[in-house]
């Protein structure tokens, strides 16, 4: 019985020792924009969930597609029903790494531009994405912004022929995390 306790302690300790500085946010803002001759398409969602393991640079994002809000309600309905099919594919996920993540000085005010690479899964399709992000530390608050462009066809999001030449085939996605929080390991 004693040996079991020791074994447990050893295992628990080893688990604990792998725990590193992790930042998370549940209130990130993700928005997209596409300019077209017919009408501009833009929407935003302020419930972007993200987590970043500073030690190895691993970073993940998750967002509910239904949470995107459009100015035009009908456009929002069509986005969910016809374009991204959100009841079939409810979430978009990003799983990637921030290069030289552990070199960022998190304790002093600074602005660092980093390279981010990873896999974006949306509408049931996964593609690699590579972009830059700006991580800002000011008065102890860690924030991040990033912008990248994707092609709708890469994610099998089809545009009806009738409006094909009026809708832009690419969209620009902006990610803004105003304040990361430190994750206290449970």
């Amino acid at each position: 019985m004693k040996s079991l306790l020791v074994l447990n302690l050893v295992v628990l300790f080893s688990v604990n020792s792998t725990a590193q500085t992790k930042y998370y946010s549940k209130a990130g803002i993700i928005s997209f924009y596409s300019k077209s001759s017919m009408e501009n398409i833009e929407a935003s969602n302020n419930k972007l969930v993200s987590i970043w393991d500073v030690s190895n640079g691993q970073i993940e994002f998750a967002v509910l597609m239904k949470g995107f809000e459009f100015e035009k309600a009908l456009m929002q309905e069509h986005f969910n029903e016809n374009y991204v099919e959100s009841s079939k594919y409810p979430k978009a996920l990003f799983n990637g790494t921030i290069e030289k993540s552990n070199a960022i000085a998190l304790l002093s005010d600074n602005i660092t531009t980093v390279q981010v690479k990873g896999l974006l899964t949306m509408h049931g399709v996964t593609n690699s994405v590579s972009t830059t992000a700006i991580i800002t530390i000011k008065n102890g608050v860690v924030s991040a912004v990033s912008k990248f462009t994707i092609a709708l066809a890469d994610y099998k999001i089809s545009i009806p022929l009738l409006v094909a030449d009026k809708i832009n085939k690419t969209i620009t996605i902006t990610i803004n995390i105003p304040a990361f929080q430190l994750l206290i390991s449970k």
Binding site: N8, V15, I51, N95
Partner: peptide, 20 residues
Amino acid sequence: LLSFILLTVQLKAQSLLKDI
């Protein structure tokens, strides 16, 4: 018990998002 602990460790490694 051990396999249970190992399993939780395994889950942690799979996705960071699971934590939050």
